[in-house]
Design a protein around this nucleic acid. Structure first.
Lengths: 101, 101
DNA sequence: CGGGATCCTATGCGATACTG
DNA sequence: CAGTATCGCATAGGATCCCG
């Protein structure tokens, strides 16, 4: 059961998943949408989500490189659980400082 | 939004909350119910949950000491979100090693 | 453009010993 | 019984530089 948290527990994973829930995105787009994230962390968290089967990674053999990320079928089943989390957070007394989603 | 995860994100917090969801418990009882937890971690996570307003801590002025923990009203509102998480975990390909809840 | 490799710091967590 | 205090390792996460 703790495994669900292992999967979404990274500092940026919930944010990433929330973005991918509504659209397919390229690496650079995600960086722009989440300014405070370092590129290392973005890469790392994407790789973990991918190896957990939550997201798909599609590489286009082009120059310049192009990589698109999207939720996998399994990943989509996670959305309701994530939304329950976000919804609860909205009702929680704000402590400030969080990214607004 | 990340704050919801800050609150339930500790290694043992989900387990603790799951136990408290169904009953009020004393410190020693919780230790017995979660054998692998160290007493330091149990104390620490309980303190954090308390300061986040998720659980209530009731101290009886007795000898020997007696302290009971229970979900606060706010804590109870968290249950649906937690259950969504657990439910998802149950459908996820098992990686083994987790506590069974 | 989308990374990989390194280095470094902060935090999490566990084990152990002591206390009102 | 229900903690507090201290130590030390392991991991997470940030900054920076390099590469096809």
């Amino acid at each position: 059961m703790v495994k669900t948290l292992n999967i979404i527990g990274g500092k940026w994973k919930p944010v990433i998943l929330h973005m991918l829930a509504s659209q397919t995105l390229r690496f650079g787009e995600m960086r722009r949408l989440i300014p405070p994230i370092s590129q290392k962390m973005l890469t790392q968290q994407l790789r973990e989500l991918e190896s957990d089967g939550i997201i798909n990674r599609k590489v286009y053999a082009e120059v310049p490189p192009k990589v698109e990320y999207s939720l996998s079928t399994l990943g989509k089943t996670l959305i309701p659980a994530l939304e329950a989390l976000y919804a609860w957070g909205d009702n929680y007394p704000d402590t400030g400082g969080d990214l607004k989603l």
